[in-house]
Computed example of a mutant assay.
Amino acid sequence: MNDRFSHQLGDEVLRRLGMVLAHAVSPDGIRPDAAWPELAARLGGEEFLVVICARSAADAANRIERLCTAIASHPWRDLVPSLQVTVSAGLVFATSADDQATLLGRADAHLYSAKEQGRNRIVADGLPPAAREHGPTVAG
């Protein structure tokens, strides 16, 4: 992004991406049907973390897929007419044996697997990767 367009445009994409992610979770981070607070945060560079509560692996995968669709369909073209933004994601499901390090480690491994498989994908614990065709990946 930065090399193709500019650092200023890359920063604006990251800012808008953060807004889309923030809207994916409720404004105060708490959904009435969620057992735990939800959040979206930038980890650094072009990597973001989204923590959601889901009733099942399928529910989590569906929510993340809807989030990816929301990102791809956001009006990025008002920045640059040819601009497309999509997501590669590593999706993990917490167990009682997990801590922050194991969760982030697995999510990161899945993220890099998604990128190696051609990007614009979700790779998840125990689920086959779900490829989508929305254009080049910007966020990782």
Score class of each variant (00 low, 15 high):
L83Y: 01
V50R: 11
G90K: 08
I64V: 15
S88T: 09
L127V: 05
K115T: 03
C53V: 06
R106Q: 07
T102S: 13
A58R: 09
L83M: 12
A61M: 09
Q117R: 15
G29C: 08
I52R: 15
G45P: 11
I122Q: 03
P32R: 12
R31H: 15
V87M: 05
A41S: 11
D108G: 08
Q117Y: 14
V85C: 00
H74F: 07
V92G: 13
G105P: 15
L83A: 01
S88D: 03
A58C: 08
L104Y: 08
D125I: 09
G118K: 05
E47F: 02
V51H: 03
P32Y: 03
P37T: 05
A35S: 11
V87E: 01
L67C: 14
C68G: 14
A131N: 07
D59F: 00
P32V: 15
S96E: 15
V123L: 04
G135W: 00
G45F: 00
V80Y: 03
A41Q: 09
D28E: 13
R31V: 14
A107Q: 14
V138K: 08
G45E: 02
A114Q: 02
G45K: 10
A130E: 12
T69G: 05
A130K: 05
R55V: 03
I52V: 14
A72H: 00
Q100Y: 04
V138E: 02
G126S: 04
A101L: 14
V25D: 05
A72I: 05
P128R: 11
P129W: 00
P75F: 01
L127K: 06
C53D: 06
P75M: 07
R31N: 13
V50T: 10
H134K: 11
T69M: 07
S82C: 08
T95A: 12
A70P: 08
D78T: 11
F48I: 13
Q117C: 07
R106V: 02
S73L: 12
E46T: 10
Q117L: 15
A34L: 08
Y112S: 04
A58K: 10
V85I: 06
L91D: 08
E46L: 11
A109L: 11
R63W: 02
W36L: 11
S82K: 14
W36I: 14
G118H: 01
N120C: 15
V85W: 03
P129I: 00
R63K: 12
V25G: 10
A70V: 04
V138P: 07
L39E: 06
